[in-house]
Design a protein around this nucleic acid. Sequence first.
DNA 1: CGCATATATCCTATTTTGGGTTATCCTAAG
DNA 2: CTTAGGATAACCCAAAATAGGATATATGCG
Lengths: 88, 88
Amino acid sequence: MSKSIFTSEYAVFRDSLRELRTEKGLTQSQLSETLGMPQSFVSKYEIGERRLDMIEVRAICQSLGTPLSVFVKKLETSISASKKGART
Amino acid sequence: MSKSIFTSEYAVFRDSLRELRTEKGLTQSQLSETLGMPQSFVSKYEIGERRLDMIEVRAICQSLGTPLSVFVKKLETSISASKKGART
DNA sequence: CGCATATATCCTATTTTGGGTTATCCTAAG
DNA sequence: CTTAGGATAACCCAAAATAGGATATATGCG
């Protein structure tokens, strides 16, 4: 188990979260408000400066109108795709 | 978004992870070894003394032979169930 | 009881986080 | 080009969380 947050998995994860937000047409500030957190919080986790646990991701997904299970499924697909693309 | 890890969601999450391990008949030490982490790591996250991010949970699920998406789906079901049961 | 196995707890140096504030970066308008 | 406004990133640092080896506790067995 990697201890670094600079692996492709983490990169894909962050991109997925940001994509979900922008798809909904929300700014970091707008999302942060529905979450009851400061804008810097959203910025930090999208950049990878702050880790999110499963329950937090679930809350974010809910704020963005997507069930956690749906998000995770897409995430798995994206991670697989990113691995396929990687040269060995 | 709650900042506490002492909500029913977190409790259900922890129980689910422990259940997944015991179902596979593994001890904390055995799992920790496949993860390349100390036994105290497994103990801590099962107790809630240590948070796990999505990618870490994914690695644990893989070590336990269960896709993350499957785990998450069960988790959602369990959380819903725990909410249904809660008195208002 | 004595030993073995599983899990929890200790300890503290190191790492991460919180969040208001400020800086940077775009984009569009004048 | 200059100014304005909005979105996002970076600052700062006290406070909180983590790492992991060592140790304690708990449980089961002969």
